[in-house]
Amino acid sequence: MLRAVAAVARRELVIFGRYPSWFIGTVIWPVLFPAAYVFSIRALAGPAATPQTYADALGVSDYAGFLIVGTTLWMWVNITLWSMGGALRQEQLGGTLEANWLTPAPRLAVLAGDAVANGAIALLQMGVSVALFVIVYGFHVRSPLASLAVLLANFPWVYGLGLLFASLVVWAKEVNGMVQLVRGVFLVLCGMTYPVAVLPHWLQGVSWVLPLTHGIEALRRTAVAGASWGAVGGDLAWLLGWGAALLLAGVAAFRWTDRRMRRLGSVGTY
């Protein structure tokens, strides 16, 4: 199993290296994406804005840091959905899914290998991003260790969601629309660019159930406001709980999809 996971991960990393534009994208997107909202915030604050204007609206005066945390975490989820959701679908469309599933390698290894490669790319991206955020936005992570812990606590749920999503895509035979739906929920509800308090009251309840809301909130507290571990303990527990649930659900969904497709003989159809 481990050898198969490593082989798939290596294949994905080789493919990633073959398209230099993907690497460029990995580097420039985290910097580019918050820029749109940075300019929007400046426009909304007006020409006479003071740090207090931003603090009143957002809860912190460092509006660039506020946005960077939200957009970076959302972008990570977005990339994971596209790449893991697209992994099996691409094989389905390219007609290689059936051939790959007939090999003696465990089928879950295909997805797990993809998750490992994506995780490695995400770590690389975040490392580069942190350096670029200092240069472009003057943003410094204030509690590095606590922030790293929050970041790592996000890994299980993000890749658990990726596993679950990949199975859903193969079953629905559609990736674009499914990504729009799932990432749209996070985009609307998780406070990527705004404090959750501005949502209507009933939506705030929904928002605080989602792991990304806790991930963003915890990372804002540690990386932007400089809070320590103790201040984000509840968020970390919530993230790890979601991680365990989504990883289990992801494996179960994959096994169910695998059985269903083989029973219906639809592995080769798209």
């Binding site: 909202y37 929007s40 915030i41 909304l44 604050a45 609206a57 957002l58 729009q180 990432r183 749209g184 929920v185 985009l187 609307v188 406070g191 990527m192 660019t193 705004y194 404090p195 501005v198 949502l199």
Partner: peptide, 15 residues
């Protein structure tokens, strides 16, 4: 398109 409007709409509401 609706989901892309939400982040700026709620950001606007904050101000």
């Amino acid at each position: 398109p609706l989901s892309w409007l939400a982040p700026v709409y709620f950001l606007g509401r904050a101000f």
